[in-house]
Design a protein around this nucleic acid. Structure first.
Lengths: 238, 238
DNA sequence: GCTGGCCAGCTGGTCTGACTAACTCAGCCA
DNA sequence: TGGCTGAGTTAGTCAGACCAGCTGGCCAGC
């Protein structure tokens, strides 16, 4: 009776289909930006029902590898530059909300990432372009009491510093962690009754960080960044 | 005719169902480890077809929030401590294979994470327990020419150092990055014809890192870790 | 009384066929 | 020429059905 020994392909079919499609995407046979065949065609091609195809596609969609372009148009493979900070951020949110990691650890992770980014930016061979970061400090000054505008410039400044490290992976993870934190913490600044002195201090800290990076003092850049973030996230009651 | 203004719930129903289930999980109304109701019951309760329920569950499953316990048993909410290194690692794999981030950036990210972990481990208030890390160095020595055994101890050593930082988030991300790298790179050690001298050097580097952490010299611990990893990943041709 | 096997019912996995709503585009009409 | 119409295609959704594996209870045989 062992004519078909069934070498343990006990995994559900939709998983196998998802894996095959995944490999087609990762191997480039379904290049980024290309449109996937319609569900019914995939259904025929794989010899499985449309339900199964849909569940496989849903998995790929959740992973951020394929995206819907319109209500009734076929899915398409995500363009490489549009790919996936969302799943990263979501994972951090889940880890936080399910109590797998404490909030302080996420803050520490952001401090570690940005500290390392500043260090790398300050010490890399090719001097990074920091005009964008400098501009953000000017925006912070110009913001005056406009906390919203200040916050935008703040966010942008930190992004530019990490970006100056030239490490795309560092940048992406930092963004994901920051987003997950901002989902957990309401903006600290808005809790302050008289934010102006705090804003002055934040501007000064940003300036110090930028200067350290410009001076190529990686150690200082890292340390200032870490301390700056730690203070920021423990703000109203330092 | 505007009796039902349809306030723009244009998102597909399975997404809305997934969001509701997600919120039930994150809010603790479906606590970790609890069993989800059967698909047919969810179908009735939400007033949607079973197809829709299944697609929503598939999304949650892909995010790693619910897991199948058996071939025919209902899904259950993942236990907090089992949650999600996989989606994290997968994301890095996709970023890498789709060319969104270069390999060197991922290596740099791991160096940044582990460097920061070593720094934190060396400078935290409460002295960390490093006996496990020390043991791993002994195992490396005992491994002799057994590259497999050496590698296991190597992996474990790095894990213990980051774990000594006390930052769970740092540890999780580091593990995910490392796994994604090991999927991209075959073990460097196996490419060497005469690995013994290299192994000696690696052991010495591990010892130096451990010593720096024990000495509380965060800066040295960080620097040694970063350089160690950079060398390791560019190994056969330094 | 206990054990073994049988059976019914529940579950997820899968398929089929059908319908709806929205998009696309060719072709028609003004 | 330019706008409109209608057919075709598509994802989204549903209902119903069947299978395979597991669970629990029941019953016959020891």
């Amino acid at each position: 009776m062992s004519s078909t020994p069934r070498p343990l392909d006990r995994r559900p079919v939709y998983e196998q289909v998802a894996d095959e499609l995944l490999e087609l995407i990762l191997s480039g046979q379904l290049p980024p930006g290309s449109v996937l065949p319609p569900e019914r065609e995939l259904s025929e091609r794989f010899g499985v029902g449309r339900t199964t195809i849909r569940e496989a596609l849903r998995a790929l969609q959740t992973k951020g590898l394929v995206v819907a372009t319109g209500p009734t148009s076929p899915l398409c493979v995500v363009a490489a530059d549009k790919l996936a900070t969302d799943p990263l951020r979501d994972t951090f949110v889940y880890l936080l909300r399910l109590g797998r990691v404490p909030l302080d650890d996420l803050i520490g992770l952001r401090a570690a990432l940005e500290g390392a980014g500043a260090l790398q930016a300050a010490t890399r061979d090719r001097r990074p372009d920091l005009t964008a970061a400098r501009d953000q400090i000017a925006f912070m000054r110009a913001a005056g009491r406009d906390l919203k505008a200040f916050d935008v410039a703040d966010i942008r400044f930190h992004l530019e510093i990490v970006r100056a490290s030239g490490n795309e992976a560092l940048t992406l993870v930092m963004l994901a962690v920051r987003d997950s934190l901002s989902k957990a913490l309401l903006s600290r600044l808005e809790a302050l009754t008289d934010p102006s002195s705090m804003l002055q201090r934040l501007i000064a800290e940003h300036e110090a960080i930028l200067q350290a990076v410009i001076d190529g003092d990686g150690e200082a850049a890292q340390h200032l960044t870490r301390e700056h973030l730690r203070r920021y996230y423990s703000m109203p009651s330092p």
